[in-house]
């Protein structure tokens, strides 16, 4: 009985931490730049396909990381230049444009890899024993890395020079410009960081999910709900949102079925839009 409870608890932690790491990229772009990048999920997809390619070429799994980062950075830079920069402060137009982008990336993936599933082998097979249970090593590593990425990002954002400049840009863009910060360049860098984080998330979850062209849709919606519930602009907000969405989803899915879990998540998000549109923890 105890072992079951511990396993379930760790499953929830696992669900919440992967959700958090998959939301980071969207949180950076939406929270800091105010751009709702609907193609976020497709950058996750790119990361997952990079992992798949790395394995199918028999390269070490970690090679997928630089591959993904390079691809997402290049693509992110191009997208920022072509469709985001001309549309800053026009959130509706960026929404439509990034929706088109998500469609394009999906269709490209479909054209290259076909519409079917691909699976990625878990790079760290086996289990580890702790607290009286056995748990897959890769999942434990995933939890640890997720928290590490979130923590590093939070500390970097709070302490580093670039971090304070980004905060300055978000807080008061005109004053940031007056002090010689090129908001254009910094915003582009922030956008690229967001797409790279999304790709990174894709590499991390690739071995645990079916890799296919439409996988991104689900991720962008869940990530969006996390931000709706948690609030924009802070790592604690993101974590609490991920905890709420991931927790509700895994609890209801376990008790009933996945459709009910998804339904509950959607209802929760709509309730927050109604009653608490700034989320649990807004930037303050």
């Amino acid at each position: 009985m105890d072992a079951l409870i511990v396993t379930q608890a760790i499953n929830v932690v696992y669900a919440v931490s992967t959700l958090a790491v998959l939301t980071l990229g969207l949180a950076v772009i939406f929270g800091l730049l105010g751009v709702l990048n609907i193609a976020h999920g497709e950058f996750v997809m790119i990361g997952a396909y990079c992992a798949y390619l790395t394995q199918s070429w028999n390269w070490p799994y970690l090679v997928a990381l630089p591959l993904t980062l390079a691809l997402c950075a290049l693509l992110g830079a191009a997208v920022e230049r072509i469709m985001i920069r001309p549309l800053y402060r026009r959130p509706f137009d960026t929404l439509v444009a990034t929706w088109g982008l998500s469609l394009l990336l999906r269709k490209i993936a479909e054209a290259i890899f076909g519409p079917g599933f691909h699976s990625v082998t878990i790079p760290l097979p086996g289990t580890v024993q702790f607290l009286g249970i056995e748990y897959p090593i890769y999942r434990v590593v995933l939890i640890a890395v997720s928290f590490a990425v979130a923590a590093v990002l939070m500390i970097w954002y709070g302490r580093s020079r670039t971090g304070s400049r980004i905060r300055a840009m978000v807080s008061n863009p005109e004053l940031a410009q007056a002090q010689g910060i090129s908001v254009r360049r910094l915003a582009a860098a922030t956008f690229i960081a967001g797409t790279c984080l999304a790709g990174l998330g894709g590499v991390m979850v690739a071995p645990l999910v079916p890799v296919q062209p439409f996988m991104g849709l689900d991720y962008v919606l869940r990530a969006f709900f996390v931000l709706v519930v948690g609030g924009l602009g802070s790592v604690p907000g993101l974590l609490s949102g991920a905890a709420a969405i991931g927790g509700v989803d895994s609890a209801i899915s376990a008790a009933s079925n996945a459709t009910d879990g998804y339904f509950a998540v959607l209802v929760l998000a709509i309730l927050f839009l109604w009653l608490k549109p700034r989320g649990l923890i807004a930037r303050g």
């Binding site: 008061n172 004053l175 930037r283």
Partner: peptide, 24 residues
Amino acid sequence: FEPSARRRAGLTYCPQERPVFDDL
């Protein structure tokens, strides 16, 4: 020149409204 370029060219500006970074 955009504002940041004017700053680099030697012009300092202290605005009337929102004169500081409130979140910093």
